[in-house]
Design a protein around this nucleic acid. Structure first.
Length: 283
DNA sequence: AGCGGGACCTGTGGGC
DNA sequence: TGCCCACAGGTCCCGC
Protein backbone atom coordinates (compact mmCIF):
# COMPACT_ATOMS: atom_id res chain seq x y z
CA UNK A 1 0.00 0.00 0.00
CA UNK A 2 1.93 2.93 1.20
CA UNK A 3 4.47 4.40 -1.16
CA UNK A 4 6.57 7.49 -0.53
CA UNK A 5 3.70 10.04 -0.31
CA UNK A 6 1.67 7.87 2.07
CA UNK A 7 4.61 7.17 4.39
CA UNK A 8 5.55 10.86 4.30
CA UNK A 9 1.97 11.71 5.31
CA UNK A 10 1.99 9.19 8.14
CA UNK A 11 5.28 10.64 9.39
CA UNK A 12 3.92 14.20 9.27
CA UNK A 13 0.61 13.35 10.96
CA UNK A 14 2.18 11.13 13.62
CA UNK A 15 5.13 13.36 14.55
CA UNK A 16 3.12 15.82 16.69
CA UNK A 17 1.89 12.94 18.86
CA UNK A 18 5.17 11.12 19.43
CA UNK A 19 7.83 13.84 19.37
CA UNK A 20 9.80 13.76 22.67
CA UNK A 21 7.70 10.90 24.05
CA UNK A 22 9.44 8.08 25.91
CA UNK A 23 8.88 4.37 25.29
CA UNK A 24 7.66 2.35 28.24
CA UNK A 25 6.69 -1.30 27.67
CA UNK A 26 5.81 -2.92 24.33
CA UNK A 27 3.61 -5.84 23.33
CA UNK A 28 4.24 -7.98 20.27
CA UNK A 29 1.06 -9.80 19.22
CA UNK A 30 2.54 -11.58 16.21
CA UNK A 31 6.15 -12.70 16.32
CA UNK A 32 6.73 -12.55 12.55
CA UNK A 33 6.03 -8.81 12.62
CA UNK A 34 9.42 -8.28 14.30
CA UNK A 35 12.26 -8.24 11.77
CA UNK A 36 14.62 -11.22 12.29
CA UNK A 37 17.61 -8.89 12.85
CA UNK A 38 15.73 -6.67 15.31
CA UNK A 39 16.77 -6.05 18.89
CA UNK A 40 14.09 -7.12 21.41
CA UNK A 41 11.19 -4.67 21.76
CA UNK A 42 11.96 -4.29 25.46
CA UNK A 43 15.20 -2.52 24.56
CA UNK A 44 13.04 0.47 23.56
CA UNK A 45 12.14 1.10 27.21
CA UNK A 46 13.50 4.45 28.40
CA UNK A 47 14.28 5.68 24.89
CA UNK A 48 13.00 9.12 23.90
CA UNK A 49 11.80 9.83 20.34
CA UNK A 50 13.97 12.73 19.18
CA UNK A 51 12.56 12.79 15.63
CA UNK A 52 10.21 10.94 13.31
CA UNK A 53 11.17 10.84 9.66
CA UNK A 54 10.74 8.92 6.42
CA UNK A 55 13.39 7.17 4.37
CA UNK A 56 12.10 5.50 1.18
CA UNK A 57 8.88 3.73 2.25
CA UNK A 58 10.16 3.34 5.81
CA UNK A 59 9.08 5.20 8.92
CA UNK A 60 12.07 5.96 11.17
CA UNK A 61 11.79 6.93 14.85
CA UNK A 62 15.14 8.35 15.98
CA UNK A 63 15.90 7.54 19.61
CA UNK A 64 17.93 9.11 22.40
CA UNK A 65 18.30 7.49 25.85
CA UNK A 66 16.39 9.38 28.53
CA UNK A 67 18.84 11.12 30.88
CA UNK A 68 19.26 9.36 34.18
CA UNK A 69 17.87 6.09 32.82
CA UNK A 70 20.08 3.03 32.60
CA UNK A 71 19.49 1.85 29.01
CA UNK A 72 19.10 -1.83 28.17
CA UNK A 73 22.05 -3.01 26.09
CA UNK A 74 22.67 -3.23 23.21
CA UNK A 75 21.29 0.29 22.91
CA UNK A 76 18.99 0.92 19.95
CA UNK A 77 19.25 4.18 18.01
CA UNK A 78 16.03 3.89 16.04
CA UNK A 79 12.77 2.07 15.47
CA UNK A 80 12.06 1.41 11.80
CA UNK A 81 8.64 0.35 10.52
CA UNK A 82 7.78 -0.88 7.05
CA UNK A 83 4.01 -0.76 6.43
CA UNK A 84 4.24 -2.93 3.29
CA UNK A 85 0.74 -3.44 1.86
CA UNK A 86 -1.73 -2.98 4.70
CA UNK A 87 0.17 -1.66 7.72
CA UNK A 88 -1.41 1.16 9.70
CA UNK A 89 -0.01 3.13 12.58
CA UNK A 90 -2.10 5.26 14.91
CA UNK A 91 -2.41 6.41 18.49
CA UNK A 92 -4.91 5.22 21.09
CA UNK A 93 -5.69 6.04 24.69
CA UNK A 94 -3.87 4.20 27.46
CA UNK A 95 -5.13 0.61 27.89
CA UNK A 96 -7.12 0.59 24.63
CA UNK A 97 -7.81 -2.99 23.53
CA UNK A 98 -6.09 -4.63 20.58
CA UNK A 99 -8.08 -5.39 17.43
CA UNK A 100 -8.13 -8.48 15.23
CA UNK A 101 -5.23 -7.19 13.14
CA UNK A 102 -3.17 -5.47 15.82
CA UNK A 103 0.42 -6.76 15.60
CA UNK A 104 2.27 -4.49 18.00
CA UNK A 105 1.46 -1.99 20.75
CA UNK A 106 3.80 0.48 22.43
CA UNK A 107 3.09 2.44 25.59
CA UNK A 108 4.46 5.97 25.36
CA UNK A 109 4.85 8.63 28.05
CA UNK A 110 4.51 12.27 27.08
CA UNK A 111 6.72 15.05 28.48
CA UNK A 112 3.77 15.96 30.79
CA UNK A 113 3.98 12.36 32.14
CA UNK A 114 0.60 11.27 30.77
CA UNK A 115 0.55 8.03 28.76
CA UNK A 116 -0.98 6.77 25.54
CA UNK A 117 -0.50 3.87 23.15
CA UNK A 118 0.89 3.54 19.66
CA UNK A 119 -0.73 0.76 17.59
CA UNK A 120 0.62 -1.09 14.59
CA UNK A 121 -2.21 -2.91 12.79
CA UNK A 122 -1.53 -4.96 9.66
CA UNK A 123 -4.19 -7.12 8.02
CA UNK A 124 -1.95 -9.03 5.66
CA UNK A 125 0.98 -9.27 8.11
CA UNK A 126 3.65 -8.36 5.57
CA UNK A 127 4.71 -5.31 7.56
CA UNK A 128 7.83 -5.27 9.73
CA UNK A 129 9.00 -3.60 12.91
CA UNK A 130 12.77 -3.29 13.42
CA UNK A 131 14.50 -1.99 16.54
CA UNK A 132 18.00 -1.17 15.38
CA UNK A 133 21.27 0.65 15.85
CA UNK A 134 23.79 1.70 13.19
CA UNK A 135 25.40 -1.74 13.00
CA UNK A 136 22.11 -3.58 12.58
CA UNK A 137 20.89 -1.14 9.94
CA UNK A 138 24.00 -1.67 7.86
CA UNK A 139 23.58 -5.43 8.29
CA UNK A 140 20.12 -5.10 6.73
CA UNK A 141 20.65 -5.60 3.01
CA UNK A 142 17.44 -3.82 2.01
CA UNK A 143 18.38 -0.69 3.97
CA UNK A 144 22.03 -0.72 2.91
CA UNK A 145 21.16 -0.94 -0.80
CA UNK A 146 18.35 1.64 -0.87
CA UNK A 147 18.73 4.06 -3.76
CA UNK A 148 18.46 7.86 -3.53
CA UNK A 149 15.34 9.78 -2.56
CA UNK A 150 13.66 10.73 -5.85
CA UNK A 151 12.70 14.20 -4.58
CA UNK A 152 16.38 14.99 -4.00
CA UNK A 153 17.67 13.56 -7.27
CA UNK A 154 19.20 15.61 -10.09
CA UNK A 155 19.16 14.68 -13.77
CA UNK A 156 22.78 13.60 -13.97
CA UNK A 157 22.43 11.17 -11.07
CA UNK A 158 19.11 9.91 -12.46
CA UNK A 159 20.61 9.25 -15.90
CA UNK A 160 23.50 7.39 -14.29
CA UNK A 161 21.03 5.02 -12.61
CA UNK A 162 19.02 4.21 -15.76
CA UNK A 163 21.13 1.20 -16.71
CA UNK A 164 20.18 -2.18 -18.13
CA UNK A 165 17.73 -3.55 -20.67
CA UNK A 166 14.82 -4.42 -18.44
CA UNK A 167 11.49 -2.62 -18.72
CA UNK A 168 11.66 0.94 -17.42
CA UNK A 169 8.72 0.31 -15.08
CA UNK A 170 10.66 -2.53 -13.43
CA UNK A 171 13.60 -0.18 -12.84
CA UNK A 172 11.35 2.46 -11.26
CA UNK A 173 9.98 -0.16 -8.86
CA UNK A 174 13.48 -1.34 -7.92
CA UNK A 175 14.23 0.27 -4.54
CA UNK A 176 17.95 -0.01 -5.26
CA UNK A 177 17.52 2.33 -8.25
CA UNK A 178 15.18 4.87 -6.62
CA UNK A 179 13.78 4.59 -3.10
CA UNK A 180 10.08 5.11 -2.44
CA UNK A 181 8.27 4.66 -5.75
CA UNK A 182 5.68 1.87 -5.96
CA UNK A 183 3.12 0.62 -8.44
CA UNK A 184 0.82 3.67 -8.35
CA UNK A 185 3.38 6.41 -8.78
CA UNK A 186 5.46 4.47 -11.32
CA UNK A 187 2.45 4.20 -13.65
CA UNK A 188 1.33 7.78 -13.03
CA UNK A 189 4.79 9.26 -13.62
CA UNK A 190 5.26 7.25 -16.82
CA UNK A 191 1.91 8.46 -18.14
CA UNK A 192 2.57 12.09 -17.24
CA UNK A 193 5.92 11.98 -19.05
CA UNK A 194 4.45 10.18 -22.10
CA UNK A 195 6.83 7.22 -21.87
CA UNK A 196 5.86 3.59 -22.46
CA UNK A 197 6.52 1.42 -19.36
CA UNK A 198 7.87 -1.40 -21.54
CA UNK A 199 10.73 0.65 -22.97
CA UNK A 200 14.17 -0.79 -22.20
CA UNK A 201 15.59 1.27 -19.34
CA UNK A 202 18.75 2.25 -21.18
CA UNK A 203 16.83 3.39 -24.30
CA UNK A 204 15.79 6.72 -22.75
CA UNK A 205 17.06 9.88 -24.40
CA UNK A 206 18.27 12.59 -22.05
CA UNK A 207 15.18 14.71 -22.83
CA UNK A 208 12.91 11.80 -21.94
CA UNK A 209 14.77 11.12 -18.71
CA UNK A 210 14.42 14.79 -17.83
CA UNK A 211 10.66 14.65 -18.47
CA UNK A 212 10.34 11.44 -16.46
CA UNK A 213 12.26 12.81 -13.48
CA UNK A 214 10.11 15.94 -13.52
CA UNK A 215 6.95 13.80 -13.70
CA UNK A 216 8.17 11.65 -10.79
CA UNK A 217 8.81 14.71 -8.63
CA UNK A 218 5.57 16.42 -9.67
CA UNK A 219 3.39 13.39 -9.00
CA UNK A 220 5.05 12.65 -5.64
CA UNK A 221 4.78 16.28 -4.53
CA UNK A 222 1.15 16.55 -5.63
CA UNK A 223 0.33 13.29 -3.86
CA UNK A 224 1.97 14.53 -0.66
CA UNK A 225 -0.14 17.72 -0.89
CA UNK A 226 -3.23 15.50 -1.22
CA UNK A 227 -2.16 13.39 1.80
CA UNK A 228 -1.50 10.29 -0.29
CA UNK A 229 -3.73 7.87 -2.20
CA UNK A 230 -6.30 5.61 -0.53
CA UNK A 231 -7.38 2.67 -2.67
CA UNK A 232 -8.69 0.67 0.22
CA UNK A 233 -6.61 0.37 3.37
CA UNK A 234 -4.34 3.37 3.58
CA UNK A 235 -5.01 5.89 6.35
CA UNK A 236 -2.76 8.50 7.95
CA UNK A 237 -2.00 8.58 11.68
CA UNK A 238 -5.27 10.46 12.28
CA UNK A 239 -7.24 7.71 10.52
CA UNK A 240 -7.93 9.93 7.51
CA UNK A 241 -7.89 8.68 3.92
CA UNK A 242 -5.81 10.40 1.26
CA UNK A 243 -7.24 12.21 -1.77
CA UNK A 244 -4.78 11.73 -4.60
CA UNK A 245 -6.62 8.64 -5.95
CA UNK A 246 -9.07 11.12 -7.48
CA UNK A 247 -6.25 12.46 -9.67
CA UNK A 248 -5.10 9.14 -11.19
CA UNK A 249 -4.71 9.13 -14.96
CA UNK A 250 -3.98 5.42 -15.34
CA UNK A 251 -3.57 3.43 -12.11
CA UNK A 252 -6.54 1.08 -11.71
CA UNK A 253 -8.12 2.37 -14.95
CA UNK A 254 -7.28 -0.46 -17.38
CA UNK A 255 -10.01 -0.78 -20.06
CA UNK A 256 -11.29 2.74 -19.40
CA UNK A 257 -10.75 5.77 -21.62
CA UNK A 258 -7.57 7.84 -21.44
CA UNK A 259 -8.38 11.13 -19.75
CA UNK A 260 -6.27 12.96 -22.36
CA UNK A 261 -7.09 11.30 -25.68
CA UNK A 262 -9.97 8.87 -25.12
CA UNK A 263 -8.06 5.78 -26.26
CA UNK A 264 -8.80 2.63 -24.25
CA UNK A 265 -6.06 2.19 -21.63
CA UNK A 266 -4.10 -1.08 -21.82
CA UNK A 267 -3.46 -3.29 -18.82
CA UNK A 268 -0.41 -5.57 -18.92
CA UNK A 269 1.94 -7.18 -16.40
CA UNK A 270 5.51 -6.06 -15.90
CA UNK A 271 7.63 -7.76 -13.27
CA UNK A 272 4.51 -9.43 -11.92
CA UNK A 273 2.81 -6.07 -11.32
CA UNK A 274 -0.31 -4.73 -13.01
CA UNK A 275 0.66 -1.92 -15.33
CA UNK A 276 -1.77 0.46 -17.04
CA UNK A 277 -0.76 2.83 -19.82
CA UNK A 278 -2.13 4.67 -22.84
CA UNK A 279 -0.87 3.17 -26.11
CA UNK A 280 -1.61 6.51 -27.83
CA UNK A 281 -0.02 8.95 -25.35
CA UNK A 282 2.97 6.87 -24.21
CA UNK A 283 5.86 6.03 -26.55
C1' DA B 1 21.18 -9.78 -15.83
C1' DG B 2 16.65 -10.27 -15.81
C1' DC B 3 12.36 -12.79 -16.52
C1' DG B 4 8.42 -15.48 -14.55
C1' DG B 5 6.39 -17.75 -10.96
C1' DG B 6 5.51 -18.57 -6.32
C1' DA B 7 5.63 -17.43 -1.39
C1' DC B 8 4.24 -14.68 2.40
C1' DC B 9 -1.16 -13.32 4.20
C1' DT B 10 -6.14 -11.65 4.56
C1' DG B 11 -9.96 -9.55 2.51
C1' DT B 12 -12.93 -7.96 -1.18
C1' DG B 13 -15.26 -7.61 -5.45
C1' DG B 14 -16.84 -9.54 -9.74
C1' DG B 15 -18.73 -13.26 -12.42
C1' DC B 16 -21.62 -17.06 -12.67
C1' DT C 1 -27.46 -15.76 -1.87
C1' DG C 2 -23.26 -18.19 -2.32
C1' DC C 3 -19.10 -20.03 -4.24
C1' DC C 4 -14.79 -19.54 -6.66
C1' DC C 5 -11.36 -16.98 -8.69
C1' DA C 6 -8.55 -13.00 -9.41
C1' DC C 7 -6.42 -9.47 -7.46
C1' DA C 8 -4.45 -5.98 -4.03
C1' DG C 9 -0.03 0.68 -2.32
C1' DG C 10 5.64 -4.82 -1.30
C1' DT C 11 9.53 -7.61 -1.16
C1' DC C 12 12.15 -12.03 -1.43
C1' DC C 13 13.66 -16.34 -3.38
C1' DC C 14 14.20 -19.89 -6.73
C1' DG C 15 15.00 -21.75 -11.22
C1' DC C 16 15.80 -20.91 -15.97
Amino acid sequence: MPELPEVETVARTLAPYVQDCVFEDSTLLRSSTLHPLSLPLKSLAGQRISALRRRAKLLVFDLVPLQGNEPIKPIPSCLVIHLRMTGRIFTAKANAESGQHTRCIWNLRKPDQSSFQLFFDDTRTFGKVFVANKELLSAWKFWRELGPEPLELNLGAFLARLRGKRALKASLLDQKVLAGIGNIYADEALFRSGINPQRPTDSLEEKEAEALLKAIKDVLNMAILKKGSSIRDYRDADGKAGNFQKSFFVYGRGGEKCRKCGTILEKIRIGGRSTVFCPQCQH
